[in-house]
């Protein structure tokens, strides 16, 4: 079995309006046995929604995801910080970071370091 990697630009993700659309878009592609590299980090809210949606989709065939994200770990609490971040997005700017997501049956190990993510992929033996 081949392993397909898909690199997705932040512009492509911007078209997915709202967290639910973004999460569904990601999970649809991961369920197609693709490992995705997103050109942006996920917020804590998006990661939480991703985990919830992932759990709801698990069945005998799809056993879930592995993911890690670089950047975006700072807490956006005040409305001014949120406004600043949203303005950057509206004006076409990039908030930075990257995210790696794939089906758990293809990812043997994913490890986050302060400045990088290492991923070991392969078909797990039954």
């Amino acid at each position: 079995m081949d392993i397909e990697l898909e690199f997705i630009s932040s512009d492509a993700l911007k078209e997915k309006i709202g967290t639910e659309n973004k999460v569904n878009y990601i999970l649809d592609r991961v369920r197609g046995n693709k490992i995705l590299i997103l050109e942006e980090s996920l917020s804590y809210e998006e990661r939480k929604k991703l985990m919830e949606a992932d759990m709801a989709q698990i069945d005998d065939e799809f056993t879930g995801i592995e993911f890690d994200t670089l950047g975006g770990d700072e807490i956006v609490k005040t409305w001014t910080e949120k406004l600043k971040k949203n303005l950057i997005k509206i004006l076409g700017g990039k908030t930075g970071g990257l995210t790696v997501i794939g089906p758990s049956k293809l990812i043997r190990e994913i490890k986050k370091h302060p400045q990088k993510i290492s991923l070991l992929a392969g078909i797990k033996e039954e």
Partner: peptide, 19 residues
Amino acid sequence: RDPYTQVNITIIGNLEARD
């Protein structure tokens, strides 16, 4: 175990965001 996992980070991040 390695504590620097996305599960731990996501739990803590969401709790922090809600103070």
